[in-house]
């Protein structure tokens, strides 16, 4: 494995490359990799992006550095805001969210991109693990043009065939019309990025498949760390690692405190 960069750094740079100029990027709390990715994209190729961080909407492409927050509820990010929307008014214009992008995590993620922040255990009244709750993810995932599932851990307890509970609907039990038949307007999850690999979704079945493995990881490693049955194509490319230039931008203009290297 290349030791020049950390896995969270690789994930952040990979995600930054998926984001297009002009898009509105929404990041929730406690998401360091997406926090870094949206700042990186804004600086490198997104002068017309808008970042929505803790309710504050901003374009800060003119800044030399866009430092990451020191901790999840670091309110000082509002110093960049051009406007502000509280939780209650956040969803006032969801009709226009086709170019909005969101990032989502989960205590469980299933093969069809459904995510669970509610908890683990068959009996809801006696959960084995009580999760933090859905936050705004059910509504955000319903309306954004697309979203990315970003995980801090890759193991068979997190990546499961079927979530015990669904807090954000991905593609249900699969099929190309899984969302349309429920009248859910947003485009759904585009990719799932883990510390081992990137999954995309098969167009017909809307089921996760292996798109690339991070340097040093084999497809077999991914299979044994994944709780659902995984089809592995004959040729699986490596996730392109960050270039020296991208890494320099990330470290000197975004992640000044080295949060992604800890």
């Amino acid at each position: 494995m290349n030791e020049k960069y950390s896995i969270p750094e690789l994930m952040a740079v990979f995600l930054a490359r998926q984001l297009n100029d002009g898009e509105v990027l929404r990041v929730g709390v406690a998401s360091p990799v997406p926090e870094a990715a949206v700042r990186m994209a804004h600086l490198t190729h997104g002068p017309n992006m808008e970042l929505v961080l803790l309710g504050a909407r901003m374009n800060v492409a003119h800044l030399e550095t866009i430092p990451m927050p020191a901790y999840g509820w670091d309110r000082r990010v509002v110093r960049w805001a051009e406007s502000y929307s509280d939780t209650g008014h956040r969803f006032d214009r969801v009709k226009d969210w086709s170019n909005h992008v969101f990032f989502i995590g989960g205590v469980q993620v299933d093969a069809y991109g459904n995510t669970n922040l509610i908890g683990v255990g068959k009996d809801y009244r006696k959960l084995r693990f009580r999760g933090p709750g859905s936050v705004g993810t059910p509504t955000l995932s319903t309306h954004v043009g697309r979203y990315y599932i970003v995980l801090n851990n890759h193991n068979p307890r997190v990546l499961v065939e079927k979530c015990d509970y669904i807090s954000a609907f991905g593609y249900g039990r699969g099929g190309a019309d899984a969302r349309a038949k429920l009248g859910i307007p947003g485009g759904g999850p585009r990719l799932c990025v883990t510390p081992m690999c990137v999954f995309d979704f098969d167009e017909g079945a809307s089921r996760m498949r292996l798109a690339s493995v991070h340097p040093g990881v084999t497809p077999e490693d991914v299979r044994s760390a994944t709780g659902f049955e995984l089809e592995i194509p004959e040729h699986v490319p490596a996730t392109p690692p960050p270039s020296d230039e991208e890494l320099a931008t990330l470290r000197t203009r975004v992640d000044l405190a080295g949060r992604l290297r800890r």
Binding site: S134, P138, T139, L140, S167, F169, R179, P185
Partner: peptide, 13 residues
């Protein structure tokens, strides 16, 4: 009425 959470487990639990 609300649309977010259609398809999720929220109405079941």
């Amino acid at each position: 009425p609300w649309r977010g959470a259609v398809g999720t487990s929220l109405p079941e639990i």
